[in-house]
């Protein structure tokens, strides 16, 4: 008798996310991937088909022109580099600010931990867009910060804060800080206090004990938090558009301009594919490290 594959609970539970990823991620990705090898044309859809019928037989037409174009116009390269730089600096700032905060929460009395975590998550209750707009009000020439500094007599001319790299960093660090703190906290909270006592007992001063024991053990948390900040920061669109320099675009803005302003879908798709390639490398690196970490436990 043929075996009927059983629809066990385990299969269903594993199947739903797989189906989800297949339909909502893999298939759209393949569509974008396909479009990136087309050429732009004035039609609906606004790109050439990949397969054409030529004398009764199918022929494949792959166009590399979109990719080639990205490297000929310095706008794209500079946007990529700028995006990576902004994301890297913002991630570092988030780490430097977020680590002490996560550490303090993890070492706080158990009763106050949940309150402190609540405060970290609290900004999410307000719309992200609204919070970024609020920064315009704070940073602009006659905004709150400049007015206070002028009134205090610290400065005599308003500082140019808005539409600078500084404003972008502030916006990204402010918005993404919880994504750094939460995984770091989850990691630090699990640390065994006896290890630090053992280090002190063996003669390590508190700072050395931190560097030799706590820091190496929180590496997984640092990586998780950094990726959670770095990856969305590379493709960030809203913050640089509202707070950033008009003369230097980030790649997210370039992407949207190609789609909506230029209606050049193939180039936009090529930009998207390259962003993805750039991000896949750190993700894979992270997963390898995480696997090694798991093996060590």
């Amino acid at each position: 008798m043929p075996r009927i594959p059983q629809l066990s609970g385990r299969r269903v539970v594993a199947g739903i996310p797989i189906l989800w990823l297949l339909v909502l991620f893999l298939i759209p990705f393949l569509i974008v991937f396909r479009i990136s090898f087309s050429e732009v044309r004035l039609a609906i859809p606004p790109y050439t088909p990949l397969f054409t019928w030529h004398h009764g037989s199918p022929s494949l037409q792959l166009h590399w022109s979109s990719y080639a174009f990205l490297f000929t116009d310095s706008l794209y390269v500079s946007s990529y580099v700028y995006s990576l730089k902004v994301a890297a600096v913002s991630t570092l700032c988030c780490l430097l600010i977020g680590y002490p905060m996560a550490y303090a929460i993890a070492r706080a009395a158990p009763a106050s931990r949940s309150v402190l975590l609540m405060l970290i998550v609290l900004p999410f209750w307000t719309s992200f867009l609204l919070r970024v707009y609020a920064w315009i009000g704070l940073l602009k020439n006659n905004g709150v910060i400049n007015n206070v500094l002028l009134w205090l007599g610290v400065i005599h001319h308003p500082l140019v804060l808005l539409q600078t790299d500084f404003a972008v960093y502030i916006g990204i660090v402010y918005s993404y800080l919880p994504f750094m703190i939460l995984p770091l906290y989850a990691n630090l909270e699990k640390h065994d206090g006896a290890l630090l006592e053992a280090a002190a007992d063996l003669g390590a001063r508190p700072m050395r004990a931190f560097l030799r024991i706590t820091l190496p053990q929180s590496l997984a948390g640092i990586l998780a938090g950094s990726l959670l900040v770095f990856i969305p920061a590379v493709g960030e669109y809203v913050i640089p558009t509202l707070l950033g320099r008009p003369d230097q675009l980030m790649i997210g803005r370039v992407l949207s301009d190609e789609f909506f302003e230029n209606r050049d879908w193939p180039v936009a798709s090529a930009v998207a594919i390259l962003v993805l390639l750039l991000l896949v490398i750190p993700i894979m690196w992270f997963q390898r490290l995480e696997r090694r970490e798991l093996e060590a436990k």
Partner: peptide, 27 residues
């Protein structure tokens, strides 16, 4: 504690999980 002429063996042993046996002892 880090200046006392005393060493302690912990109940949980408190070995540093990210270090080898040699590294633990050398610490």
């Amino acid at each position: 504690p880090y200046e006392r002429p005393v060493n302690m063996m912990f109940q949980s042993y408190a070995l540093f999980p990210h270090m080898s046996v040699e590294k633990n002892v050398a610490f």
